Computed example of a mutant assay.
Amino acid sequence: METPEYTPIPERAAQAMAGFIPSEESIDKKVAQFAHISPRDEDKEGDTEVIDGVTFTHHFVDAPGDYDVIRWHYVEAGVGEAIVFLHGIPDSWYQWHPQMVAFASSYRCIAVDLKGYGQSEKSAGDYRHEGAAEELYTMLQQIGVTKFNIVGHDRGSVQADFIAANHPESVLRYGRGEQHLYHFNPVLAPQEALFRDAPWTGAMEDPKRFAVWVYTWITNRPISDEVMARVIQEYAYPGIVRAVPRYFNSSTFRQEWLTRRRRLLKAWTCPVVIMQGYGSKTQPREFYEKAREYIPNAKDVAVHFMPGGHFWTLECPDETTEAIRHLLTM
Protein backbone atom coordinates (compact mmCIF):
# COMPACT_ATOMS: atom_id res chain seq x y z
CA MET A 1 0.00 0.00 0.00
CA GLU A 2 1.38 3.37 -1.02
CA THR A 3 2.24 5.66 1.88
CA PRO A 4 1.41 9.33 1.32
CA GLU A 5 4.08 11.95 1.84
CA TYR A 6 3.91 14.67 4.44
CA THR A 7 2.65 17.98 3.12
CA PRO A 8 5.26 20.75 3.17
CA ILE A 9 4.41 23.48 5.66
CA PRO A 10 3.38 26.76 3.99
CA GLU A 11 5.95 29.51 4.55
CA ARG A 12 3.37 31.66 6.33
CA ALA A 13 2.58 28.84 8.76
CA ALA A 14 6.26 28.05 9.33
CA GLN A 15 6.89 31.65 10.35
CA ALA A 16 3.92 31.52 12.73
CA MET A 17 5.36 28.38 14.32
CA ALA A 18 8.74 29.97 15.02
CA GLY A 19 9.13 30.74 18.71
CA PHE A 20 5.42 30.61 19.47
CA ILE A 21 5.62 28.39 22.56
CA PRO A 22 5.16 30.67 25.61
CA SER A 23 7.94 31.16 28.13
CA GLU A 24 7.75 29.58 31.56
CA GLU A 25 7.81 33.05 33.10
CA SER A 26 4.72 34.12 31.18
CA ILE A 27 2.92 30.94 32.22
CA ASP A 28 3.88 31.51 35.86
CA LYS A 29 2.22 34.92 35.74
CA LYS A 30 -0.97 33.57 34.21
CA VAL A 31 -1.18 30.63 36.61
CA ALA A 32 -0.87 33.10 39.49
CA GLN A 33 -4.07 34.77 38.28
CA PHE A 34 -5.92 31.54 39.05
CA ALA A 35 -4.25 30.67 42.34
CA HIS A 36 -7.59 31.15 44.11
CA ILE A 37 -9.41 28.57 41.95
CA SER A 38 -10.31 25.50 43.98
CA PRO A 39 -11.51 22.11 42.75
CA ARG A 40 -15.18 21.86 41.81
CA ASP A 41 -17.42 19.31 43.52
CA GLU A 42 -18.47 16.46 41.26
CA ASP A 43 -22.02 16.57 39.97
CA LYS A 44 -24.77 14.04 40.62
CA GLU A 45 -27.38 12.63 38.26
CA GLY A 46 -29.99 15.29 37.56
CA ASP A 47 -28.03 18.25 38.91
CA THR A 48 -28.76 21.44 37.02
CA GLU A 49 -27.05 24.74 36.46
CA VAL A 50 -28.16 27.82 34.54
CA ILE A 51 -25.81 29.42 32.01
CA ASP A 52 -26.93 32.57 30.20
CA GLY A 53 -30.56 31.79 31.03
CA VAL A 54 -30.48 28.20 29.76
CA THR A 55 -30.83 25.21 32.09
CA PHE A 56 -28.14 22.55 31.71
CA THR A 57 -28.77 19.10 33.23
CA HIS A 58 -25.98 16.75 34.25
CA HIS A 59 -26.46 13.06 33.53
CA PHE A 60 -24.51 9.90 34.32
CA VAL A 61 -25.07 6.59 32.60
CA ASP A 62 -23.38 3.18 32.69
CA ALA A 63 -23.08 1.68 29.22
CA PRO A 64 -21.36 -1.44 27.83
CA GLY A 65 -17.67 -1.12 27.07
CA ASP A 66 -14.28 -2.68 27.72
CA TYR A 67 -16.05 -6.04 28.33
CA ASP A 68 -17.69 -4.44 31.36
CA VAL A 69 -19.41 -1.07 31.76
CA ILE A 70 -18.22 2.51 31.36
CA ARG A 71 -19.56 5.44 33.37
CA TRP A 72 -20.30 8.41 31.14
CA HIS A 73 -21.00 11.99 32.11
CA TYR A 74 -22.87 14.20 29.68
CA VAL A 75 -24.70 17.50 29.92
CA GLU A 76 -27.94 18.21 28.12
CA ALA A 77 -29.98 21.28 27.24
CA GLY A 78 -33.03 21.75 25.01
CA VAL A 79 -35.27 19.41 23.05
CA GLY A 80 -35.61 18.44 19.41
CA GLU A 81 -33.22 16.97 16.84
CA ALA A 82 -30.00 15.98 18.59
CA ILE A 83 -26.62 17.68 18.30
CA VAL A 84 -23.80 15.74 19.98
CA PHE A 85 -20.78 17.88 20.90
CA LEU A 86 -17.34 16.35 21.49
CA HIS A 87 -14.53 18.35 23.08
CA GLY A 88 -10.73 18.27 22.76
CA ILE A 89 -7.80 18.55 25.15
CA PRO A 90 -7.65 19.98 27.84
CA ASP A 91 -11.40 20.43 27.75
CA SER A 92 -14.75 18.94 28.70
CA TRP A 93 -18.42 19.33 27.82
CA TYR A 94 -18.07 22.96 28.98
CA GLN A 95 -16.11 23.87 25.86
CA TRP A 96 -19.42 23.91 23.96
CA HIS A 97 -21.59 25.81 26.43
CA PRO A 98 -21.94 28.96 24.24
CA GLN A 99 -23.21 26.91 21.30
CA MET A 100 -25.52 24.86 23.53
CA VAL A 101 -27.04 28.11 24.83
CA ALA A 102 -27.58 29.25 21.24
CA PHE A 103 -29.23 26.04 20.01
CA ALA A 104 -31.13 24.79 23.07
CA SER A 105 -34.32 26.54 21.99
CA SER A 106 -34.57 24.32 18.89
CA TYR A 107 -32.30 21.31 19.40
CA ARG A 108 -31.47 18.66 21.97
CA CYS A 109 -27.88 19.60 22.75
CA ILE A 110 -25.76 16.85 24.31
CA ALA A 111 -22.15 17.53 25.28
CA VAL A 112 -20.20 14.49 26.42
CA ASP A 113 -17.10 14.23 28.58
CA LEU A 114 -14.93 11.87 26.54
CA LYS A 115 -13.68 8.78 28.30
CA GLY A 116 -10.77 9.79 30.52
CA TYR A 117 -11.90 13.41 30.77
CA GLY A 118 -14.14 15.45 33.03
CA GLN A 119 -16.44 13.27 35.09
CA SER A 120 -16.50 10.28 32.73
CA GLU A 121 -14.74 6.93 33.25
CA LYS A 122 -11.00 7.07 33.86
CA SER A 123 -10.08 3.45 34.53
CA ALA A 124 -7.82 1.42 32.26
CA GLY A 125 -9.30 0.07 29.06
CA ASP A 126 -9.45 0.67 25.31
CA TYR A 127 -8.03 4.13 24.59
CA ARG A 128 -7.67 3.67 20.86
CA HIS A 129 -9.80 6.44 19.40
CA GLU A 130 -11.82 4.01 17.31
CA GLY A 131 -12.47 1.80 20.32
CA ALA A 132 -13.46 4.75 22.50
CA ALA A 133 -15.66 6.09 19.71
CA GLU A 134 -17.52 2.79 19.44
CA GLU A 135 -18.11 2.82 23.20
CA LEU A 136 -19.40 6.37 22.98
CA TYR A 137 -21.71 5.42 20.11
CA THR A 138 -23.07 2.54 22.21
CA MET A 139 -23.83 4.96 25.03
CA LEU A 140 -25.69 7.31 22.67
CA GLN A 141 -27.83 4.43 21.44
CA GLN A 142 -28.60 3.49 25.04
CA ILE A 143 -29.91 6.97 25.88
CA GLY A 144 -32.07 7.00 22.75
CA VAL A 145 -29.89 9.17 20.52
CA THR A 146 -30.09 7.04 17.38
CA LYS A 147 -29.89 9.79 14.75
CA PHE A 148 -27.91 12.91 15.43
CA ASN A 149 -25.73 15.71 14.20
CA ILE A 150 -22.19 15.51 15.54
CA VAL A 151 -19.79 18.39 16.11
CA GLY A 152 -16.20 17.84 17.23
CA HIS A 153 -13.13 19.87 18.13
CA ASP A 154 -9.53 18.67 18.29
CA ARG A 155 -9.39 15.20 19.91
CA GLY A 156 -13.18 15.06 19.85
CA SER A 157 -13.00 15.25 16.06
CA VAL A 158 -10.76 12.18 16.02
CA GLN A 159 -13.51 10.11 17.65
CA ALA A 160 -16.23 11.78 15.59
CA ASP A 161 -14.30 10.81 12.44
CA PHE A 162 -14.81 7.14 13.31
CA ILE A 163 -18.46 7.55 14.29
CA ALA A 164 -19.28 9.33 11.01
CA ALA A 165 -17.44 6.65 9.02
CA ASN A 166 -18.63 3.55 10.88
CA HIS A 167 -22.24 4.63 11.45
CA PRO A 168 -23.36 6.74 8.48
CA GLU A 169 -26.95 5.64 9.04
CA SER A 170 -26.96 7.51 12.36
CA VAL A 171 -25.05 10.69 11.54
CA LEU A 172 -27.20 13.39 9.95
CA ARG A 173 -24.48 16.02 9.56
CA TYR A 174 -20.89 16.35 10.69
CA GLY A 175 -19.19 19.55 11.87
CA ARG A 176 -15.47 18.88 12.24
CA GLY A 177 -12.87 21.19 13.65
CA GLU A 178 -9.23 21.79 14.49
CA GLN A 179 -7.85 18.41 13.54
CA HIS A 180 -5.62 17.25 10.70
CA LEU A 181 -7.68 16.08 7.75
CA TYR A 182 -5.96 15.10 4.48
CA HIS A 183 -2.66 16.94 4.94
CA PHE A 184 -0.24 16.41 7.81
CA ASN A 185 3.30 17.26 8.83
CA PRO A 186 4.64 16.10 12.23
CA VAL A 187 6.51 19.38 12.70
CA LEU A 188 3.07 20.87 13.37
CA ALA A 189 2.44 18.46 16.25
CA PRO A 190 5.18 19.03 18.84
CA GLN A 191 2.65 18.38 21.58
CA GLU A 192 2.32 14.68 20.68
CA ALA A 193 5.49 13.59 22.48
CA LEU A 194 4.73 15.87 25.42
CA PHE A 195 1.28 14.37 25.94
CA ARG A 196 2.47 10.81 25.32
CA ASP A 197 5.20 11.07 27.93
CA ALA A 198 3.17 13.06 30.45
CA PRO A 199 2.87 10.24 33.02
CA TRP A 200 6.66 10.11 33.29
CA THR A 201 7.63 13.75 32.78
CA GLY A 202 4.87 15.14 34.98
CA ALA A 203 3.78 17.50 32.19
CA MET A 204 0.12 17.20 33.24
CA GLU A 205 0.74 16.75 36.95
CA ASP A 206 -0.52 20.25 37.73
CA PRO A 207 -3.80 20.43 35.78
CA LYS A 208 -4.14 24.17 36.40
CA ARG A 209 -0.76 24.90 34.89
CA PHE A 210 -1.29 22.48 32.02
CA ALA A 211 -4.64 24.01 31.03
CA VAL A 212 -3.26 27.55 31.22
CA TRP A 213 -0.18 26.54 29.22
CA VAL A 214 -2.17 24.96 26.39
CA TYR A 215 -4.62 27.83 26.14
CA THR A 216 -1.84 30.43 26.22
CA TRP A 217 0.07 28.52 23.58
CA ILE A 218 -2.53 28.36 20.82
CA THR A 219 -5.18 31.01 21.38
CA ASN A 220 -5.31 34.22 19.35
CA ARG A 221 -8.16 35.95 21.15
CA PRO A 222 -8.61 36.50 24.89
CA ILE A 223 -10.85 34.24 26.96
CA SER A 224 -12.41 35.65 30.12
CA ASP A 225 -10.98 34.67 33.49
CA GLU A 226 -14.40 33.31 34.47
CA VAL A 227 -14.48 30.91 31.53
CA MET A 228 -10.83 29.94 31.97
CA ALA A 229 -11.44 29.18 35.64
CA ARG A 230 -14.15 26.66 34.71
CA VAL A 231 -11.93 25.12 32.02
CA ILE A 232 -9.31 24.55 34.71
CA GLN A 233 -11.81 23.04 37.12
CA GLU A 234 -13.20 20.63 34.54
CA TYR A 235 -9.70 19.36 33.77
CA ALA A 236 -8.83 18.96 37.44
CA TYR A 237 -11.09 16.07 38.45
CA PRO A 238 -9.12 13.18 39.97
CA GLY A 239 -7.65 10.72 37.48
CA ILE A 240 -7.66 12.87 34.32
CA VAL A 241 -3.92 13.47 34.27
CA ARG A 242 -3.34 9.69 34.32
CA ALA A 243 -6.13 8.71 31.92
CA VAL A 244 -5.68 11.21 29.07
CA PRO A 245 -2.10 10.17 28.15
CA ARG A 246 -3.40 6.65 27.45
CA TYR A 247 -4.83 7.96 24.19
CA PHE A 248 -1.39 9.14 23.09
CA ASN A 249 0.13 5.77 23.96
CA SER A 250 -2.53 3.86 22.02
CA SER A 251 -2.01 5.53 18.65
CA THR A 252 -0.02 8.26 16.95
CA PHE A 253 -0.95 11.32 14.93
CA ARG A 254 0.64 9.63 11.93
CA GLN A 255 -1.54 6.54 12.36
CA GLU A 256 -4.62 8.74 12.64
CA TRP A 257 -3.66 10.59 9.47
CA LEU A 258 -3.07 7.38 7.52
CA THR A 259 -6.40 5.93 8.69
CA ARG A 260 -8.21 9.02 7.45
CA ARG A 261 -6.47 8.95 4.09
CA ARG A 262 -6.98 5.21 3.57
CA ARG A 263 -10.43 4.63 5.02
CA LEU A 264 -12.34 7.32 6.85
CA LEU A 265 -12.58 10.28 4.49
CA LYS A 266 -14.23 8.30 1.72
CA ALA A 267 -16.68 6.76 4.20
CA TRP A 268 -18.28 10.06 5.21
CA THR A 269 -21.54 10.43 3.31
CA CYS A 270 -23.45 13.07 5.26
CA PRO A 271 -23.00 16.85 4.77
CA VAL A 272 -19.73 18.03 6.34
CA VAL A 273 -18.60 21.45 7.54
CA ILE A 274 -14.88 21.84 8.20
CA MET A 275 -14.25 24.47 10.90
CA GLN A 276 -10.74 25.78 11.45
CA GLY A 277 -9.15 28.76 13.13
CA TYR A 278 -7.99 31.25 10.51
CA GLY A 279 -4.96 31.95 12.67
CA SER A 280 -4.51 28.42 14.02
CA LYS A 281 -0.79 27.89 14.59
CA THR A 282 -0.76 24.10 14.36
CA GLN A 283 -3.48 23.70 11.71
CA PRO A 284 -2.52 25.83 8.66
CA ARG A 285 -5.64 27.07 6.89
CA GLU A 286 -4.02 26.24 3.54
CA PHE A 287 -4.45 22.55 4.38
CA TYR A 288 -8.27 22.83 4.36
CA GLU A 289 -9.12 25.13 1.49
CA LYS A 290 -9.84 22.26 -0.92
CA ALA A 291 -11.63 20.03 1.57
CA ARG A 292 -14.31 19.10 -0.97
CA GLU A 293 -11.67 17.15 -2.92
CA TYR A 294 -10.66 15.15 0.15
CA ILE A 295 -14.15 14.01 1.15
CA PRO A 296 -15.44 12.68 -2.18
CA ASN A 297 -18.59 10.89 -1.07
CA ALA A 298 -20.05 13.46 1.32
CA LYS A 299 -23.39 14.90 0.30
CA ASP A 300 -21.93 18.39 0.59
CA VAL A 301 -18.78 19.97 2.04
CA ALA A 302 -18.23 23.52 3.27
CA VAL A 303 -15.26 25.20 4.97
CA HIS A 304 -15.54 27.90 7.62
CA PHE A 305 -12.47 29.71 8.93
CA MET A 306 -12.97 31.19 12.39
CA PRO A 307 -11.30 34.50 13.28
CA GLY A 308 -9.68 33.00 16.41
CA GLY A 309 -6.91 30.52 17.04
CA HIS A 310 -7.24 26.89 18.09
CA PHE A 311 -9.91 27.33 20.78
CA TRP A 312 -12.45 29.17 18.64
CA THR A 313 -15.48 27.69 20.41
CA LEU A 314 -14.58 30.03 23.28
CA GLU A 315 -12.47 32.62 21.45
CA CYS A 316 -15.17 33.50 18.91
CA PRO A 317 -18.37 31.77 20.06
CA ASP A 318 -20.72 33.74 17.80
CA GLU A 319 -18.84 32.84 14.63
CA THR A 320 -18.68 29.20 15.78
CA THR A 321 -22.43 29.21 16.30
CA GLU A 322 -23.01 30.60 12.81
CA ALA A 323 -20.83 27.90 11.25
CA ILE A 324 -22.84 25.21 13.04
CA ARG A 325 -26.06 26.94 12.01
CA HIS A 326 -24.90 26.62 8.40
CA LEU A 327 -24.21 22.92 8.97
CA LEU A 328 -27.74 22.39 10.24
CA THR A 329 -29.22 23.81 7.01
CA MET A 330 -27.23 21.48 4.72
Rank of each mutant, 00 (worst) to 15 (best):
A77S: 14
D300H: 14
L264K: 03
T329Y: 10
Q233C: 08
G279D: 14
E256C: 13
E319K: 01
W312R: 01
A18S: 13
E315K: 04
P190C: 04
Q191S: 13
E315N: 06
D43Q: 13
P90T: 10
G152Q: 06
V212H: 02
S38K: 01
N297A: 13
H167V: 06
K115G: 03
H153K: 04
R246N: 14
Y294E: 12
N297P: 07
Y215L: 12
W312G: 07
P22T: 10
K147M: 04
V75R: 00
R40P: 05
P64V: 10
F210R: 00
Y235G: 11
Y127H: 04
R12N: 15
V241N: 11
D66K: 00
K44G: 12
R128I: 07
Q99V: 13
L136S: 04
P168G: 08
G156E: 05
R263N: 15
L136H: 03
R12I: 15
I83T: 09
I232M: 08
G65N: 03
F311V: 03
G239V: 11
A291M: 04
I9V: 15
I218T: 15
D225Q: 05
G46S: 07
D62A: 00
S251N: 13
E121D: 15
V84C: 05
G88Y: 13
T201Y: 07
D62S: 00
T138L: 00
K299T: 15
E134C: 03
P90W: 09
S23F: 14
